[in-house]
């Protein structure tokens, strides 16, 4: 019998369940290693070489190198673990969260000051809120040419 996973229809949201945790185990444990100052230094000195010490998939390594947090989450990362990469880069939780929306830092901060993202239209896939797949990216940062 299939497991009960009623959260798969929430737009723009990945629930970190046992399946995601299994996929992301080494990615997340790599992140944990960045809680030690000496490891942060070694990672910053040569990111690729440090990542190659971990049995992560190539996709996971590339997502970390690109700081593509949405991709990291799709590949099993969890934000509380990924936050250690942000801390290593000197980024706040707000900068990290905002980076996943396509908004610039200022756009995202302004949205929060105005009361945050509205729930209307963002409860279920198929509605028309700003977190829905057909409305990405949401801001100027995501529209910029790479």
């Amino acid at each position: 019998m299939a497991l009960n996973r009623p959260y798969l229809d929430i737009p723009g949201t990945t629930i970190f369940d046992a399946e995601q945790s299994r996929r992301g185990y080494h990615l997340n444990q790599f992140c944990m290693s960045l809680m030690k100052a000496a490891n942060r230094e070694r990672f910053k000195a040569n990111e690729r070489a440090y990542l190659d010490e971990w049995p992560m998939t190539e996709e996971q390594k590339l997502a970390v190198l690109a700081r593509d947090l949405n991709r990291c989450i799709a590949l099993g990362g969890n934000i509380y673990f990924l936050a250690k990469i942000g801390a290593t880069d000197g980024k706040s939780f707000q900068q990290m969260a905002g980076s996943m929306t396509g908004m610039t830092e200022a756009e995202y901060r302004d949205m929060m000051v105005r009361g945050g993202r509205a729930i209307e239209g963002n409860r279920r896939l198929g509605e028309d809120g700003d977190a829905q797949p057909h409305r990405q990216p949401q801001g100027a940062a995501g529209r910029r040419e790479p």
Binding site: I10, P11, G12, T13, T14, L69, N70, I73, I79, F93, M96, A97, G98, M100, T101, G102, Y108, M111, M112, G115, G116, R117, I119, N122, A131, Q132, P133, Q136, P137, Q138
Partner: peptide
């Protein structure tokens, strides 16, 4: 209420 991940980050439901 808060969400720290994905395109729905920043959700607030007062």
């Amino acid at each position: 209420s808060h969400q720290l991940q994905g395109p729905r980050a920043g959700l607030i439901n007062a």
